[in-house]
Design a protein around this nucleic acid. Structure first.
Lengths: 232, 232
DNA sequence: GTGTGCCATCTTCCATGCAAGATGGCATTT
DNA sequence: AAATGCCATCTTGCATGGAAGATGGCACAC
């Protein structure tokens, strides 16, 4: 069957459901599906060149991920993020990343050093991007740091939670990247986390990771509310 | 349409997908679907008196919950829990419940008192059940305590994570209830959490909740491995 | 002008058919 | 007897049709 529609042609791997999931997810993350938009499964299916069934099943998965709500007989609603949601999300991140840092600091030396090296590389990229005034690169390196932190804790459930949560924050991150002040502070706080890991000090690592995210939250939330962003 | 099969007849509310999800979930939790069992969607659909579609969609949701794995063209595999999984799960619980306790301790006084009262009621039920030697009642009250702790933190994402994680632990809890030693300690640790909340001391609450779950984990994991339970 | 109720339309929910992939047993070969 | 390859069978992936629920606009009554 030839894909008659332009849009998506990279279905090299996996099932149609996976394709639909990936396509819809990235459409939501890069905001080509705006929050509040109500899409019909039929329409999406048409655009993706498949039938309604895989779209429907992908929608169920996206709903579990908290990106959309499937409204019975109404359609698929792209969810917006209220400041209250951002607060919720940060509380989860504070909990999870704190524990991840603690776990890494408790590991045997070789694993600790390896993790610290990876984290350090990401942090130095941030410092360089900051020096160059390259904001997108800074954002990417920052994302990489937090992703590495979770990864090295070697806990699939934590990874999954972090992934979901990070998806939900994605739009907020993109939007506020230009407004953020604490770039310098972030780099220094990342270094504090790395130092605690190198020292094998779990308590210090836990607190450093928590402090970092708590500060970021306290910086981001006022921004959102002061700009009157009821949802994004 | 008359349900020809005996099994499930409570489909009062919601969609067939919801019914299938609820039926399969409880079948897994109470172990009438044993781990390792490979069910075909057709067979389940027949038993539930519906077609394959809603069963298939429910299976997707259960897979997101980590209870089954849908194997392409093979069937639905009921997942077992290895000690490694239990360790992973506890790390998530330690992170989430610690943060929940901290959040509650940071609330204004009325909310704190209300939460503490609810938690205290559950804890006293545990103490009474312990005195009566009523193990199932103890387990139920213990479950209620932890469920209340999350609930009062008022964070839907945390609640969802806690629910998922607690489902996964359900079988392990049932299995080890008879083996557990630290009933007394649990009650005392719960009281420590409640005291910290009453005092409005977030740091103490965080640490008390963490210590409680860390001890429980350190007590449970050796039990599992020493009994040679490779999976459950 | 305002409020009420009906109905055309849109949308998902679920059943079912077809096709393709995976498996396990059986026959055949060595 | 052991190994190999084939095929019948079982299973899901996906498409599609029928049915029922939800909505919003329009006509009608007041």
């Amino acid at each position: 069957m030839a894909r008659s529609t332009a849009r998506v042609d990279e279905e090299r791997k996996g099932s149609l459901v996976d394709d639909a999931y990936a396509a819809m997810r990235s459409a939501i993350l890069d905001a080509s599906f705006a929050p509040g938009y109500q899409a019909s499964e039929q329409e999406i299916a048409l655009r993706l060149g498949m039938s309604r069934t895989p779209v429907h099943e992908a929608a169920i998965r996206l709903q579990e991920d908290g990106l959309v709500r499937v409204q019975p007989r109404r359609g698929i609603l792209i969810l917006a993020l209220a400041p209250e949601d951002v607060r919720e999300i940060y509380d989860v991140v504070i909990a999870i990343e704190g524990r991840a840092a603690e776990i890494i600091a408790e590991m045997a030396e070789p694993a600790r050093l390896k993790a610290a090296a990876a984290l350090d590389a990401a942090t130095e990229k941030m410092a360089k991007a900051h020096a160059d005034g390259d904001l997108p690169a800074w954002g990417q390196a920052d994302g990489a740091f937090h992703s590495l932190l979770i990864e090295h804790a070697r806990n699939r459930r934590m990874s999954r939670i972090a992934q979901t949560i990070s998806d939900q924050l994605h739009r907020a991150r993109m939007l506020t990247l230009n407004l953020r002040k604490g770039l310098e502070a972030s780099v220094e706080e990342h270094r504090a986390i790395i130092r605690s890991i190198l020292a094998g000090d779990p308590v210090a690592a836990l607190n450093a990771a928590r402090r970092h995210r708590i500060r970021a939250r306290d910086e981001l939330l006022p921004l959102l509310t002061s700009y009157g962003l009821k949802h994004l």
